[in-house]
């Protein structure tokens, strides 16, 4: 009897180990896919999720793919963006995928996010291999095929890879955990002064990203007119002038905004310090860094700013 039980147990274990589902598949790895709507903000007092305002004929998203763990390399196909499935719902109703046009941009960045890896430890030009601790970043644009704007409402976007398109280095299919990502957001009509404020902030950022700083300046001027008593808004002007490398104008705007940022953990004092260094006023840069952050790291910050400025100037010379 004992032998029979042992035999059945052995048979059972053999069956488990040779289960057809475990052949050609592994499940010990987490593939993270993260997505976020570009040109949106969570600053709305009405909603917790990111919002964007006004009519949009196209929606731009950032997409990140990361291999979070596991002992083996994951391979994405060379044309991996072709294998990406994108689903969009509006107010819980699925929008037919055939009505959507998806344009994935070329790969933008490969990066390390594991502190144990240094930036030099991987080949930044090889986008097919996804090592643990390495991420890929790209972007895509969604449009409606009929050319109409996306209606106002609550949206949910989900993206994942087609089955079998991601493989381990031994050729087996990835069937691990994760592998789905997405974003929720709202497209809102501009109805209140708070909405108008959000609209200007988002629009200005969009213009800056598209390298249209003059249009960003116009929008931020309107923001200042909308809230003349809110001096913190001058920081947007400062950021735009900085983008244009008009450092003296940026200093005037940042100095005006600075009192509104006392006690906050912001980048404004760094940006003002950057402008001071750019116009050879290093002592003023030290002063503002000391006032906001204390004695630590001042010289390291100045050194880094100089490094960035040298790079910028080097690029201009090449042009």
């Amino acid at each position: 009897m004992k032998n029979l039980i042992m035999l059945m147990l052995l048979l059972f274990l053999t069956m488990i180990s040779s289960h057809p589902g475990s052949e050609g598949q592994r499940s010990d790895s987490y593939l993270g896919i993260y997505c976020s709507l570009m040109h949106s903000t969570t600053g709305s007092p009405r909603y917790d999720e990111p919002v964007t305002y006004g009519e949009h004929n196209e929606l731009a998203f950032k997409l990140s793919v990361v291999h979070e763990e596991g002992g083996m390399l994951l391979f994405l196909p060379e044309d991996f963006t072709e294998h990406l499935v994108i689903e969009l719902t509006k107010d819980e109703e699925r929008l037919p995928v055939e009505n959507l046009d998806v344009q994935v941009s070329t790969m933008e960045t490969k990066y390390a996010y594991d502190p144990r890896l240094s930036e030099q430890d991987y080949d930044p030009d090889n986008f097919q291999v996804l090592e643990p601790g390495i991420g890929l970043r790209t972007s895509f644009i969604l449009k409606r095929r009929d050319g109409t704007p996306f209606p106002y409402g609550f949206y949910k976007l989900i993206c994942y890879f087609k089955r079998g398109s991601v493989k381990f280095e031994d050729g087996t299919d990835w069937q691990g955990r994760g592998g789905r990502g997405g974003a929720i957001f709202r497209i809102l009509r501009v109805e209140s002064p708070e909405d108008q404020r959000g609209y200007y902030i988002i629009k200005g950022g969009e213009y800056l990203q598209k390298n249209q700083p003059e249009r960003a300046l116009e929008v931020y001027q309107k923001l200042i007119e909308l809230e003349p008593e809110n001096i913190s808004n001058y920081a947007w002007l400062g950021a735009t002038y900085m983008h244009m490398e008009k450092y003296r104008e940026a200093i005037v705007a940042y100095e005006k905004a600075l009192p509104a940022y006392i006690g906050e953990r912001t980048s404004i004092p760094y940006e003002l310090a950057f402008c001071y260094v750019a116009v050879n006023r290093e002592e003023k840069a030290r002063e503002v860094l000391k006032k906001f952050f204390g004695e630590l790291h001042i010289e390291e910050t100045i050194r880094r700013i100089k490094m960035v400025l040298e790079k910028k100037r080097g690029r201009h010379k090449k042009k």
Partner: peptide
Amino acid sequence: NISPMAPRSGLFG
């Protein structure tokens, strides 16, 4: 929330 854009310029969180 991880937000693409700060509601005030330069804010980290």
